[in-house]
Design a protein around this nucleic acid. Structure first.
Lengths: 303, 303
DNA sequence: ATGGCTCTACCGGTATTTCCGATAGTACAA
DNA sequence: TTGTACTATCGGAAATACCGGTAGAGCCAT
C-alpha cells in the first residue's frame, strides 16, 4: 500500500478540475503541495495518470479508469469516515433533481428522509436533465433524479416510478369543452412547452412525433410555473407532468385534455455513477423515495 | 477525512490479533508506533474501538462493526493499489478449500485462472470445513470453498455446484455383487469414514440419520486417499464424493453401491465474509470455477 | 507475597513527510 | 514582446511518524 488518502484526494480533485491550481484551491492547499503529491503518487507507482503536454493536463487512459475506481474508493472512505464520526450514520447526501421532480416530488421525500436521519445534511439542487447528469458524472452530487432514460455510459439508471404527461388548457379556452383532441386540434393549437433539453419536452416530442413538424411551438419556458401561468392566461395549451398539475385540476384553474392513442407515459430514474460502491445514504434515499410513493398511493394525490 | 490508511491498517491488525504487540510485529513496526497510531485514531474521532480493561484489549461493539467495514474498505484499497501497481490487475488471491474440493476440483480451476491472469500469485490452502471458515472470517484468505451449508452470520454463502456422495467397496468385497444395499447391509457393514467435522461425514450422517445409532464406524481418516486405500484393502466400505472416486470406478478398483431412497446430494458453496466490497479477483475466481465446471460437463469426467 | 512475564501507554530525540512561498520554465494570446 | 496562466522544483519551516527505553498494571508460578 504505497498510496495515501491525501494523494488519492488530490488526484481526484485534479482529475475533476483538470487543473492543479484549481484543485489545490478547492482543497485549501498550495499549488506546489498538490503538484508534489501528485508527482509522488505517480512516481511511487511508476504510472502516468495525466498527459502533461504543452503545460496542460489531461487524464491519461489509465487515469480515466483509475479516476472512476478512485472515486468509488473515496466514497467508501467517506462512508467509513461517517461511521467513525457519528457512530450511527447521519445520512448526509447531495441530490440533484430535474425541476419537475425536485420541486414537486423530492420535497416530500425530504420529509421522510429527514425523519429517518434527524441530523442529516441533505443538499437538494434542481437543474435540467443534462445538468443533473453532468453533476452526477462529475461526482458533484451523490445521486441524480431524472425524468427520462438517457444514453450515457458511466451512468447507471434505476427506474423508480411511473409518470404521465397531460395536455391542458385554461378553463375558458375553446378546447376546454372538448373531451378529446383530434390531430387537427393538435396542429392548430398554440403550444407552450418546456425547453428541448427538458424531460417533459422529450417525452412530448416522442408521443407526437408524427405531427411534430406541423406543431406550432408558441412559447418555451424553462420552468413549469411559467408555463402554467401562460396557459392559465389563455395564451395557448401546455403539456406537463400530471404531478405538477393535480392541484390546478382540482381547483378548476386548468383543464386536462385527452389525446387518444398517444402514449405520454414515462419512467423516472435514479442516476448513479457506474461504480461499485456508493454511500449507504444513497440506498437510504432511494428506499425513502419508493416508500414515500407507496404510502402516497393510498392517500388522494395532491401537491 | 481525519483517518489515514496507515491507521486503518493498524486498527485492522490489532483487531485481528486482539493484541497491539503482535499486530505491530506483523506490520514490522514498533509496538509504540502501533499504540500511538491507534490512540490517535480513537482520539481524533473521539471513539472507543477497544475495551481496555485489565491491560487486555477486546473489540468494543462499535469496533466490531467498524472492523467489518474497515476490512471491506481495506480490500477496496488493496484492489486500487493493485490497479495502480500493475495497470492490468494481476489477480492475486488467497483461497482456502476443503480437502475434497481443494485436491480434486480447485487444481483444475487453477489452470483456467492462471491462464486468465498469467502473473497472478494464487495461494491455495486445503483444510477441513471449520478451519476454512475460520480463515475466511479472520480475513486470512479472500475466499473459501466448502462442501456444505453452514450456519454462520458474518459469512455469505454462494452455491456453485452440485455434488453427490457415493457408497463404495472393493472389487472383491462380498457386497460388490449386490446392486442395492438394504438397511441390513448398511447396519452390518464396517464403515470407513471421514472425521465428523468434514463435509462428507455430515452429509452421510444426514442421509442415514435413521440408521445412524446402529451403524458401525470402523475407521476414521482425515484424508480421502486413506479411506480409498483402506476400502480397497477390503477393510470395509466407504462413502465419499463422486468426484474423488470417478477414476477408481473407471479402473474397476472400487465398486459403487446404490442405497435406494437415500439422498446423498449436496451443494458446494463459496464462503465470503459478509461485507460489501471484495477484490475483483474474487469475482474472477468464482467465474472461472463455474465456467470450468460447464466446459467439463461436456467432456467425460475424470480426475 | 514476590519476582518474572506480558502487555499497554507514555516520553524524548530523531527521521521523514508535508507544507508553503518563491522562482524558473513553458505555452499561448494580445 | 509582454502579460497571463499554468506546472515543476527548490529550500526551509512545520508537522508527523518512528523508535528505543521505560513506567505501570495484571497474571501466574513459585
Amino acid at each position: 500500500m504505497k498510496f495515501t488518502l491525501r494523494q488519492l484526494h488530490i488526484f481526484l480533485a485534479v482529475a475533476k478540475y483538470q487543473n492543479i491550481s484549481r484543485a489545490a484551491e478547492s482543497l485549501h492547499i498550495s499549488q506546489s503541495a498538490a503538484s508534489e503529491a501528485l508527482n509522488n503518487l505517480e512516481k511511487s507507482y511508476n504510472v502516468c495518470l495525466f498527459n502533461r503536454q504543452k503545460n496542460k493536463l489531461s487524464l491519461s487512459p489509465i487515469g480515466q479508469t483509475l479516476r472512476i475506481e478512485g472515486e468509488s474508493l473515496w466514497a467508501h472512505c467517506q462512508s467509513f469516515d461517517n461511521r467513525l464520526t457519528n457512530h450511527n450514520e447521519m445520512g448526509h447526501i447531495k441530490v440533484a433533481a430535474s425541476f419537475t421532480i425536485g420541486n414537486h416530488l423530492a420535497t416530500r421525500y425530504l420529509g421522510g428522509y429527514l425523519n429517518q436521519f434527524p441530523g442529516a445534511n441533505v443538499q437538494l439542487e434542481t437543474a435540467n436533465t443534462p445538468e443533473v447528469i453532468a453533476k452526477v458524472l462529475n461526482y458533484d452530487v451523490d445521486i441524480g433524479m431524472i425524468e427520462n432514460e438517457v444514453q450515457e455510459k458511466d451512468l447507471e439508471l434505476i427506474p423508480w416510478r411511473e409518470d404521465e404527461l397531460v395536455v391542458f388548457c385554461a378553463a375558458n379556452h375553446p378546447l376546454a369543452r372538448k373531451k378529446r383532441l383530434e390531430d387537427k386540434d393538435i396542429r392548430e393549437a398554440k403550444w407552450i412547452l418546456r425547453e428541448p433539453d427538458s424531460g417533459a419536452r422529450q417525452t412530448f416530442e416522442k408521443a407526437l412525433s408524427n405531427l411534430l413538424p406541423k406543431i406550432q411551438i408558441y412559447l418555451e419556458f424553462k420552468h413549469n410555473e411559467a408555463i402554467k401561468n401562460a396557459v392559465e392566461s389563455g395564451l395557448g395549451i401546455g403539456c406537463l407532468s400530471r404531478i405538477v398539475l393535480n392541484k390546478n385540476f382540482a381547483n378548476g384553474d386548468l383543464i386536462p385534455l385527452t389525446l387518444p392513442n398517444r402514449d405520454m407515459k414515462r419512467t423516472f430514474y435514479f442516476a448513479l455513477p457506474k461504480q461499485r460502491y456508493h454511500l449507504s445514504a444513497v440506498d437510504a434515499w432511494m428506499n425513502t423515495c419508493v416508500e414515500t410513493d407507496i404510502t402516497d398511493m393510498a392517500k388522494p394525490q395532491d401537491t
